[in-house]
Amino acid sequence: MHVGAVNRMRAPDDTEGGEDAVLIARLLAGDEQAFVEIVERLHGSLVRVARAFVGDRAVAEEVVQDTWAAVLEGLPRFEGRSSLKTWIFRILTNRARTRGARESRSVPFSSFDSVDEHEPAVDPARFLPSGKWGAPPRAWNEDSPERLLARRETLAFLEQAIAELPRSQRAVLVLRDVEGVDADDACDILQITENNQRVLLHRARSRLRAALEQHMAP
């Protein structure tokens, strides 16, 4: 039941496939509005994920521009074996990886923010020696995403908190929770193991919860 509550946000694959087919047909027909729509929907996330591989913002933007060019070029041959979104992110990370490897200061994705290092989900000082809460989380007033995001400062705050995540955590979070890509595809896109993916996602989500908590009840 709890799992369902989270998964509900994702469109079922057949719907996604149907929407993809419509969008692709429009793009291939040269519909500019269709292109604007998909660019507006994905551009920000593409830049965020690219930056996990290339540190420099301007270079990341270039990689994203190249990605859109490759997407248009490859579109007539797109077979729909994955969702359009997954396909686009895969093109992006292939390019970003190549580009990142060429940059002197770049580090391979897998060695960022080593996942072996222990990073607790919650400040250990908030627990008693028994492991029970000493300073438990206080309930928040807002109880829906809509109500939370209705406050402009909360929206800005959450975006800032995402921007401040370590880059591999941010890449996983953007794919999984912003874009709703499933775990298998996220692993494939980022070339990380299932376990690392889950650890990075856990840390990213835990940090965002903690940030929201600070924001809601300072």
């Binding site: 507006e40 920000g44 809460w133 939370l148 929201l212």
Partner: peptide
């Protein structure tokens, strides 16, 4: 812990509800 889990889920759903940024 119920409160904690609820907040984690809300954080996830709120992240998913963020509007795409301006280009």
């Amino acid at each position: 812990c119920r409160t904690y889990v609820r907040q984690m889920k809300l954080a996830v759903r709120t992240t998913g509800a963020l509007p795409p940024g301006d280009i």
